[in-house]
Amino acid sequence: MKKHHVSTTINGDEVDFLCETSETLLDVLRDHLHLTGAKEGCGTGDCGACSVTLDGVLVCSCLVLGVEAEGKEIETIEGMADGDELHPLQRKFVEHIALQCGICTPGLLISARSLLEKNPNPTEEEVRFGLAGNLCRCTGYQNIIEAVMDAAQEMRGA
């Protein structure tokens, strides 16, 4: 099967890959580039476990074709920490026990980062609605919401 040659930037690195038309960006990240931080929970955009940003916009990578990534900048969970230094959201997720099994965690962190970029001082309700695209089955969301609120406060420098 003929494949497309795609040149893209992932977490700041220039990356080339080959993919079939039917392969999603998530397939490419996980199966071709071995960036397995984004997870496939549903493949239909209903769980948010595969969340990444595409040119700064939060998307489900299962709903983007790999070939559409040509010339784009992609950010995944693998690029969230700065070396050993965790992003404040990552740190607060650890502190607040905002994760259990952890399968939804990368997607939630990417979503939460996007949320706080747009709205650095959200209400609890705004966080709950803003993260509604990310299913979590372990935590009941309570500690996730607390972690995001706490991280927002820290990131505002309050």
């Binding site: 397995t36 965790l86 990368p106």
Partner: peptide, 13 residues
């Protein structure tokens, strides 16, 4: 926790 927040934890898939 740290492996899980950085995407490094390895699940079966």
């Amino acid at each position: 926790a740290v492996d899980k927040v950085t995407g490094k934890a390895r699940y079966a898939a």
